[in-house]
Amino acid sequence: MPLVSNILSSSLGQKYLMALSGVGLFGFIVVHMLGNLTILAGPAAINEYAAKLHSMGPLLWIARIGLLGMVGVHIWAAVRLTRDNRKARSVQYQGAVDPVDRHRRSKIVSTYASRTMIYSGLIIAAFALFHIAHFTWKIPQINGVEVDFETFYVYEVSAGSDQVAYLTPLPDGVGKEGENAVDVYKMLTTGFKVWWVSIFYVIAVGLLCIHLSHGLSAMFQSLGLKTKAYEKWIDHFACATGWLLFAGYASVPVSILLGFIP
């Protein structure tokens, strides 16, 4: 198939794959943040949201496999492209960038975000792995507290005033993965009370948003959708989205650490 080989083996094709997998992952980033923010509406809201998400069954698995595939493609393309780029420019200039038109320096020097995409990306990938081990696999050895998140479950139905749906915890040892609703609220408030978990989280989402501030605008260029007419809008959109996502993500651990969310 010439089409497939033209995509896989050319630098432009790899850039397309990078951009398209980036679009998909960006979609996940947005939805995940909106989901996280349900915590601001109280414990019942986020627990119910999580239970609904888990009840999607096969759809959830399709989404997970799709995301994993996109992560794979994104990293594969990134590693190949970065390797080619390093090879293409193996000698650096000794002279510091100092154009005779001094005001043009900022146009010639690449942005911090664009130079560090591979590093921010790999750190985010490492964080994502920790994040999944922490809150999805709930490995007790890495959560930094004495309790096991695997024991946090809530009732899904209300029965009188002492059993409120998505609020009242199940007795210890009763809940079962896949059968009972997880007490996400308790897991987050317990998990993010650990200062280093929160700090790692904030640093990682900060890097993610720096990554996106370049990635979101470069994505348009790689797909041939950026022109001077829209350039400013696209760049402002990328920058603003980066900050909005940072605010949205960081607000959860920060609120928990500062005690705004009990």
Partner: peptide, 20 residues
Amino acid sequence: VKQMDKEGFGNCTVTGACEA
């Protein structure tokens, strides 16, 4: 594009230095 890749040039990271 094929020849460009073969010659060992790198890829576009959209920094805009070329245009500048």
